[in-house]
């Protein structure tokens, strides 16, 4: 029996005695994970300020269960907010490698997606972080509004719910 989170109380009540559900481990695992995506505070440029604003009073990341983590070991989601230069690229790769599976990457803003305003004529800017690490969700904008970032994080949650635990191992090996 599959569980949808919005129907969870119904299922729980329908079992005699209540409080018992049967489901797949995979489903319950991804469900809980999607509700507590801890993100790596990885801001480099302008988008970092919007990332901070999203975490602050008005937009309040916490209501999606998202708390910033300074260490990649504790993070599920890497929000790459800002321009990545060639000097920074090895560091991004290394931080990504330090994150534990399942790990997701959200590219925030034009620079992280494809170089943004520094695409032309710049000798120092990496044109898109997808040249270095795999990206799950792209949020365009220069910088994107906090609402766009929130939407992007919900999309990460949606993607997470479609994944299987076996995939993580495969992704790890590959």
């Amino acid at each position: 029996m599959g569980v949808n989170d919005d129907k969870l109380p119904v299922y729980a009540e329908s079992v005699p005695g209540g409080g018992i559900i049967t489901t797949q481990l995979n489903k319950i695992f991804t469900l809980t994970q999607a509700k507590s995506l801890w993100y790596l505070l990885f801001g480099t440029a302008c988008c970092a300020i919007e990332l901070m604003a999203t975490g602050a009073s008005r937009y309040d990341f916490d209501r999606l269960g998202m708390i910033f983590r300074a260490s990649p070991r504790q993070a599920d989601l890497m929000i790459v907010a800002g321009t990545i230069t060639y000097k920074m690229a090895p560091v991004v790769k290394r931080l990504y490698d330090q994150m534990a599976e399942p790990r997701y990457v959200l590219a925030m803003g034009g620079c992280a997606i494809g170089g943004g305003p520094f695409y032309y004529d710049s000798y120092a800017v990496l044109r898109g972080i997808d040249k270095v690490i795999p990206v799950d969700v792209y949020v365009p904008g220069c910088p994107p509004r906090p609402e766009a970032l929130l939407q992007g994080c919900l999309e990460v949650g949606k993607k997470l719910r479609t994944q299987k635990m076996e995939d993580w191992r495969v992704r790890n090996d590959g």
């Binding site: 321009t83 230069t85 000097k87 920074m88 560091v91 520094f118 004529d121 710049s122 000798y123 800017v125």
Partner: peptide, 14 residues
């Protein structure tokens, strides 16, 4: 420093 050197001065010349 230099992790955010985006060559703005060079880009402006073009």
């Amino acid at each position: 420093i230099g992790f955010l050197h985006r060559a703005i001065e060079k880009i402006c010349e073009n």
